[in-house]
């Protein structure tokens, strides 16, 4: 058994207590996200695994199999914390406060032998620093997963196809129309055209902040695809400033039916499908009855 491991094993309980105390006194800790009991059992599990790894005498390579279990537990903790909304600071504190607790015990144990103290703390510090780094890396990976999932969700919710009238579909597009979004918009639209047998689709771009040549190309592609399905496409919601930039850029939308507002696009769609929407003069009817 390595001497470091022996020292630490002997004071296992004290390490846990100090570590818990360190964590709980850190003002940043979110007791709303995790109960003390949970924290204790998590910390206990990690310390057990860590002492077992120390026991192997390997203090150089945390990526070796000696540390498999430690890293597994740590990864689990970081990913969970990332999802639960812990801050990087709170997550980082977890390993850092363990390092403090370990150092305190070693200092106490080896206070008469500075040389040995230096040797031992150097070994444990290097391991705990590496573990700290791993915790961060995993934490960030966890956060990125959250971001990717949200991106997917945003893509899903922001491209609804609405049946505004029999045979008329409307697609409000909000945000930037990049290649991935265009793909989703196009798929949803073509699918709905088939499902509903619609003959007109209105693409409303009021919520698109800028139309550059890439966005324009995507719009043109979507219109072409709609036509191939035997339906017609109207682009609405072209704001004044967008109209000006399109003209300066030199993008030719003359083959595409465009309207300033969704209302006027709908009106055009009505006339194309021979639908008439009129105001009924109720007063006139009333008079007639009298």
């Amino acid at each position: 058994m390595s001497t470091t491991a022996q020292h630490l094993q002997k004071h296992r309980q004290r390490i846990i207590e100090t570590w818990m105390k360190n964590q709980l006194t850190d003002a940043a800790l979110r007791d709303d996200l995790m109960s003390n009991d949970e924290l204790r059992s998590q910390s206990d599990e990690l310390l057990t695994a860590l002492l077992r790894a120390f026991n192997s005498g390997n203090f150089d390579d945390v990526y070796s199999s000696d540390y498999d279990q430690v890293i597994e537990i740590l990864n689990d903790i970081s990913i969970t914390r990332a999802r639960q909304g812990f801050s990087p600071r709170e997550t980082g504190q977890y390993v850092i406060s363990l390092k403090k607790a370990v150092n305190e015990v070693l200092e106490e144990e080896l206070k008469d032998d500075p040389g040995a103290l230096y040797q031992e703390t150097r070994k444990t510090d290097s391991v705990l620093d590496s573990l700290s780094m791993i915790t961060f890396e995993t934490f960030i990976k966890g956060r990125e997963e959250v971001i990717f999932r949200q991106t997917d969700e945003i893509n899903e919710i922001s491209t609804p196809v609405i049946r505004v009238w029999d045979g008329i579909l409307a697609l409000p597009i909000i945000g930037t129309l990049d290649s991935a979004r265009t793909q989703i918009v196009m798929e949803n639209l073509l699918q709905e055209i088939v499902n509903t047998g619609s003959s007109i689709a209105i693409l409303d771009i009021s919520g698109v902040p800028a139309v550059d040549s890439l966005v324009a190309q995507h719009l043109i592609k979507t219109v072409s695809a709609t036509r191939l399905m035997g339906a017609e496409c109207i682009i609405s919601g072209i704001r004044a400033e967008i109209a000006q930039t399109i003209v300066h850029l030199g993008i030719d939308l003359s083959n595409i039916k465009t309207k300033a507002t969704l209302a006027s696009a709908l009106q055009l769609a009505f006339s194309m499908t021979n639908v008439e929407v009129r105001k009924i003069n109720r007063n006139a009817g009333f008079k007639l009855m009298k």
């Binding site: 902040p209 139309v211 550059d212 040549s213 890439l214 400033e241 967008i242 930039t245 300066h248 850029l249």
Partner: peptide, 10 residues
């Protein structure tokens, strides 16, 4: 603004 950000985008 729109002209500038469209240019920037390109």
């Amino acid at each position: 603004q729109t002209k500038l950000i469209t240019a920037a985008s390109e």
